[in-house]
Design a protein around this nucleic acid. Structure first.
Lengths: 239, 239
DNA sequence: CGGAGTGCCACC
DNA sequence: GGTGGCACTCCG
C-alpha cells in the first residue's frame, strides 16, 4: 500500500476552497489550461491578483504558485538565502493552505509532459541532505527539546548511518513535495550502498519498500479516531 | 527649406507596414520599450525571429535592427570586411524596406536620451571619406560607365578639392543615414578649411547651406511627374 | 479564448 | 550586466 494515502493536507487548500482546471478546447491556445479557485463563499477567483484582493493584505502570496496551487520552494529560496535541501522539510503552517482540498480535474491523466516542462526547475538536491541536520533537535520557545518521534519497525532506512530523525525528515520531505506516491527505494540496501548516485531514486525517501497490512491501517485509524475524540473533549471543555 | 522633405524612402518600411513603440508603464520592467510591427495583412510582429518567419527564408535580416527599424551598418561590416566609410552609400535595394512608412509613436518627443543610448555605436567616420572614391565610377554589368550625375549650381561643396561625385556621395550618405534633416554645413567655407576636424558637422554632407526656392521645388516636381509618366508608358507597353 | 502587457532568463 | 525573445498572466 502506498504511504500516499496517509498523506496529510500537504499543499492542500483551506477548508471550503476548491480548485478547478479547465482545458481550452479550441482557438490558438487549444490545450492550455486555465486554473480557477472557488472561495468558501462561492466566489470564482481567476488570477493571483484577484486572490490577493480577496484575501486582504495580511497574507503573503509571493511563494504561492497560482497555476499549480502549491508553494514554490525556489521562490522561497529567493527570499531566504540558504541551502535548497534545508528548505524541504518546511512546516506546513508556512503554507497559506492549511486544510484539505478538493481538486477538480476535467482532463484525463495525460499531463506528464507538461509537468516536466512547466514550473521553475530546482537544482538537483544532495542525495543525503538529511545528514546535515544530524544531531539537531527541534525545541519549543522555552528551549525545551520536543520528544523525538519513532518509526514503526517495518520502516527501514537506507543510506549512510541515517538516524531515525534523518529518515523522518526524508519521509516528510517526500510527502511535502508530494507529486508522486511515496513508496520508498525499489533497490535493495546492498545495491544502494554500492552506488548511491546511480541507484537511489531521488524522488523517494531513504527507506526500503515495505508491506503495509490491513491491520496496520486499522490500527492507525483507531489511533487517529482516539486522538480526535480527545481533541473533541478538550474543545468541548472550553465551550 | 530642408532637403529632408525630398528624402526618399531611406530606412523606411515597405508599403503597408507600420512600426509601433510601446513603453511599459508598470511592473519590474517599467520604461522598457517594446517594438511591434504590423504587416500589410494586419499581423502583429513582436520580434525579429517572428519577422523572419513571416517573411520567409529569402530575406537576409542579419543587418536589420528590429528595435530601431533600421539597417545597422556595423552589422554589415561584419559580413564584408571593408572600411565603414565605404558602406555608407549603399544601395537602398539592399534594405528589406523599400517603401515609405508610417511610424506610430505613443510617447511624446522626449526620446533624445534613448536615441543616444540605444543602437550599436558606429566608430567615428573619416571627415573626407568620400575622397577614397576619387576617380572611381559606377558601371553596369557590361563594363559600360554610367553617365555621371550633375548638381544644381546652388549646391556648393566644402572640403579639399571634392569632385562633384564626392559631393554626391556625401549627400546620398547623409540622406541614407537620414536621422536628421540634411541642411549642409553651417560654417562658411573659410572656417571649415581652417580646421575641418573641429568645425565640420559630421552629420551633414560637405555642402554649404543653400536656399531652395519654391521655384526649385516646382521644377523638381515637374521633372518627377514627367519621369513617372515615361515609366508608365513603358510599363503599359509591356502589358 | 484572445491578446496586450509583463516576467523572466538564456544568451551575448 | 544588459537585452532579446518568448512564455505567461490576467482581464475583456
Amino acid at each position: 500500500m502506498e504511504l500516499e494515502k496517509r498523506r496529510s493536507n500537504c499543499g492542500g487548500l483551506p477548508s471550503g476552497w476548491k480548485r478547478e482546471e479547465v482545458v481550452r478546447k479550441s482557438g490558438l491556445s487549444v490545450g492550455k489550461t486555465d486554473v480557477y479557485y472557488y472561495s468558501p463563499d462561492g466566489k470564482k477567483i481567476r488570477s493571483k491578483p484577484m486572490l490577493a484582493r480577496h484575501l486582504g493584505e495580511s497574507l503573503d502570496l509571493s511563494a504561492f504558485d497560482f497555476r499549480t496551487g502549491r508553494i514554490i520552494h525556489s521562490a522561497l529560496r529567493k527570499r531566504i538565502r540558504h541551502d535548497t535541501s534545508l528548505v524541504l522539510p518546511i512546516r506546513q503552517t508556512a503554507s497559506i493552505f492549511k486544510q484539505p482540498v478538493t481538486v477538480i480535474r476535467n482532463l484525463t491523466e495525460s499531463k506528464s509532459k507538461t509537468d516536466l516542462k512547466h514550473g521553475p526547475q530546482d537544482p538537483p538536491k544532495q542525495l543525503f541532505w538529511e545528514k546535515r541536520l544530524q544531531g539537531m533537535k527541534a525545541c519549543d520557545s522555552g528551549d525545551e527539546f520536543l520528544l523525538p518521534l519513532d518509526l514503526p519497525r517495518n520502516v527501514q532506512g537506507v543510506g549512510p548511518e541515517l538516524s531515525t530523525e534523518n529518515i523522518l525528515q526524508s519521509i516528510s520531505a517526500a510527502l511535502h513535495l508530494g507529486n508522486a506516491p511515496v513508496t520508498g527505494q525499489a533497490n535493495n540496501k546492498a545495491t544502494l550502498a554500492k552506488n548511491p548516485g546511480v541507484n537511489i531514486d531521488t524522488n523517494q525517501p531513504h527507506i526500503q519498500q515495505m508491506i503495509v497490512s490491513e491491520d496496520d491501517i486499522k490500527r492507525q485509524e483507531t489511533k487517529v479516531m482516539e486522538a480526535r475524540r480527545k481533541l473533541q473533549d478538550v474543545m468541548k471543555g472550553h465551550l
